[in-house]
Design a protein around this nucleic acid. Structure first.
Lengths: 146, 146
DNA sequence: GCAAAAAACTAAACATGTTAAGTAATAAAG
DNA sequence: CTTTATTACTTAACATGTTTAGTTTTTTGC
């Protein structure tokens, strides 16, 4: 008897199903990003900064699903590339506040059309209703206490 | 006007929602794996090998959602640790066939209880019905042509 | 107020992700 | 049967993921 008979098949395993679904969704986005020499993580950071304005690095880490050491490293190159700026918070000198620059916003703006087209394509194939249902379930899953 | 007004908020962005949901699900699994000195990727490979039997590396890559260069590297250490064995296929000498060893199966067996407990915990909080609904939607999303 | 704990970040080490380039074996095209 | 294309895999280089350990600053508890 194999161990397999005890475990769920990988196809119905939540972690793997989430990973595979994400690979599907990310494939065209990766194609888009590769054309503009930016990584998926930097794209997420730009999105977060554009959405939230000036925030500290921990917030970026939480919102973009990155670990703080990764954020430290990634922001270093993004600052060198003038996509973001950093300054020390005057009230709490532990904090580093981060802002998106015009150059950073340009990257978002220039890829807006492609980004929307990718979303629309998925929506057209799955249907808005199912997509909303999926997003609701994913939000609910995130709230589970583990 | 910020770019943000044009793009979807990250909370309703499918790629980020999938990523966050996965982080939630993986947190306790990572805790489990850290105790036995094995990575999430090696765990997935062991699961796939146990489920499918002897397969070639490309199949592992596809089933475990890994790229072939990663598989090459990971299997090298797994072979050194005697969790898997590799042999050249006699019909097609390009192929390397991989099998899980008893030591590899032991790792699965020893963590079965914990693994099931984690699944049960999520199921108890979300409900079996919603979880099945989520898995169905994720499967459907994977099938989308991008 | 002051010592201890916590928070925010950085550094370093090793594993994996990702792309590009290369090798060997097989399949296809003519 | 031979050239060409494709497949399966490996190697290398660089970016990120992940853990541990450290620094600086702020907060807590007494």
């Amino acid at each position: 008897m194999t161990t397999q008979s005890h475990t769920k098949s990988t196809a119905r395993s939540l972690p793997i199903a989430l990973l595979r679904a994400r690979e599907t969704v990310m494939a065209p986005i990766r194609d888009m990003l590769q054309g503009i020499q930016i990584t998926e993580q930097k794209w997420r950071i730009l999105r977060v900064l554009d959405e939230l304005g000036e925030v500290e690095q921990s917030t970026i880490a939480h919102e973009a699903c990155l670990l703080l050491p990764s954020v430290t490293r990634i922001l270093r190159t993004m600052e060198a590339d003038a996509q973001i700026t950093r300054r020390q918070d005057s009230n709490d000198k532990r904090r580093t506040m981060v802002t998106i620059t015009d150059a950073g916003r340009s990257i978002l703006r220039e890829n807006l059309a492609t980004s929307l087209a990718i979303s629309s394509n998925i929506e057209a194939q799955m249907g808005r209703e199912k997509l909303d249902q999926l997003l609701d379930l994913l939000e609910e899953l995130q709230a589970v206490k583990v």
